[in-house]
Amino acid sequence: MSLIYNWMYYIASGGLILIGMYIILVKTNLIKIIIGLNFIDTGVNILLVCIGYVKGRTAPIFSTSRINPTNVVDPVPQALVLTAIVIGVAVLALALSIAIKVYEHNKTLNVTKIRGLKW
């Protein structure tokens, strides 16, 4: 049981990254590739959050007096994830806009059919 408990989140994050990599390497639809990029982002974010997690502790917000400094998780990975999420959103938005333009020029989203430059 403890084995599953210890590895569950790592498997989730590693699995998401691997699924994303697989999509990027194998799939030919541009939108699917962009979704794959998002999978990788999510996987890395989960990895960051589980690095900061400490068993049985709570969020580092001292809004009530019941929470004391020995009882909170690491705040830094949460701050990093906040940044990473915003960066992921930015890349996603830009990727979709470029995909729109690629579609306008080629009338297809299949990367093997876009022959202008070698893929």
């Binding site: 990254i17 990027i24 690095i51 960066i87 830009l94 990727a95 470029i98 995909a99 202008g116 893929w119």
Partner: peptide, 29 residues
């Protein structure tokens, strides 16, 4: 046509690269 395609290609490879950097940073932390 060329520019958007090249940008798409650059974006896909570049963001995989930056995800790898982030994984490296996470492992270091």
């Amino acid at each position: 046509k060329e520019g958007t395609e090249a940008a798409m290609k650059y974006l896909i490879q570049g963001s995989v690269g930056s995800s790898f950097i982030l994984i490296g940073v996470a492992l270091l932390y």
